[in-house]
Design a protein around this nucleic acid. Sequence first.
DNA 1: CTCTATCTGGAAGGTAGGTTCCGGTTAACT
DNA 2: AGTTAACCGGAACCTACCTTCCAGATAGAG
Lengths: 234, 234
Amino acid sequence: MATNGRPARTDAGSVSGRPLRADAERNRQRLIAAARQVFAERGLHVPMEDIARHAGVGVATLYRRFPTRAHLIAGAFEAKMCAYADAVAQALADPDPWAGFCGYIERVCAMQAEDRGFANVLTMTFPLHKCFEAERDRAFRGFAELVDRAKAAGELRQDFVGEDLAVLLMANAGVIAGTASAAPHTWRRFAAYMIQAFSAGNAAPLPPPPTPTAIYRALLHLYEAGIRDERCGG
Amino acid sequence: MATNGRPARTDAGSVSGRPLRADAERNRQRLIAAARQVFAERGLHVPMEDIARHAGVGVATLYRRFPTRAHLIAGAFEAKMCAYADAVAQALADPDPWAGFCGYIERVCAMQAEDRGFANVLTMTFPLHKCFEAERDRAFRGFAELVDRAKAAGELRQDFVGEDLAVLLMANAGVIAGTASAAPHTWRRFAAYMIQAFSAGNAAPLPPPPTPTAIYRALLHLYEAGIRDERCGG
DNA sequence: CTCTATCTGGAAGGTAGGTTCCGGTTAACT
DNA sequence: AGTTAACCGGAACCTACCTTCCAGATAGAG
């Protein structure tokens, strides 16, 4: 939950190096708060104007501070991305590797269910926002460690690979997009099914996993398709 | 594969009762063919004009024949919906209930992977197109029979419910939306994981499933959200 | 062949959202 | 308090797409 002690930003929030004037920084914070709430409730495709109105500022101010939607998304979800990575550390602290693994899967799926925007953010990569992607990498490295331990404990199937997490996130995003409003607990059952599938107990052979670079290209594709218009949800 | 002997349409294709003039009927067929191809390649959200151009007719002709996008979707996917229902019958013909069940899951996921539009159609309900929904019902009733037999054979977990199929379809739609272009075989691995999760072998307890009416509302929600604008991918 | 109901395509009108411009305002330094 | 660079918001502009309209073309009956 904590941001792991790292400073969230090196500057006061400006895109360039110079710190922002006080009122500008205040508006920037309002925009981020508004974006967090609106993205969480309605997804990443909401009109820019709605976010600006919700923040109580004009559209121009939004564009001045966040020149593209991707900038705004990165700004709004930076903290959650840290929490996502911190959750791995928490899972690694569990003395039982399998419990840690399962807890992490559930936690991540829950984060998707709580926030419609974040559900999609987790299935994209934002190549221009290095600080953002650094958190994802941190999460992924920790997850790889979690996977190794759970395999070593004999609880996780040996043919599980890290890329399977990305697939799970895409699948759960689909479940949530469909059921969030009408059957909001469905994701729990789905996550339980997936954990069941990941357990080592009489595991049947699987088709080969996607390569890491293929998965990266898939995340990139969702970014490109999802920022331009989306709606996707689909 | 076959349309099961039922007449695909009672009339020659008109919305009202009177049959269409020959050229109009020809254009209607062209539109359906164009819509099938374009929906399959690019999803349900493609501009109406692109479909008309691909069919070699004007936009007005498209609107004249299919007053809403939903009409066009229903027209374009009616045959595939029949195939979807026929696949159940085929699965029921398998002497091994578990093999029939697994084969059906794989077949359905494959149909989603082959056709980006159909992947989403299977996660929606079109309440105004009764003939279309009748096929879905036929598929669902057959699937319920398949489930009962697989449970009786002791291969399918007892807590599986028919609604889990809808959840699987939504999840697989999410996997395909993400990986179709960059890692096109990923759905196979995902489907294998799901089948593994459905098998009776040391099945851990699951959170409760959504009710049938909740799932119906979920499908309806995806219809409303997906036809108006979508793009969904989300 | 003639006539007419039916059909056609392009163009026009409407809406939603993204992005930029510009005259007025304000923080903050001296 | 005065000065200035930074900032603000709404309006204007632009694009993409949906939907309707209408003057001309055509199938098909008599």
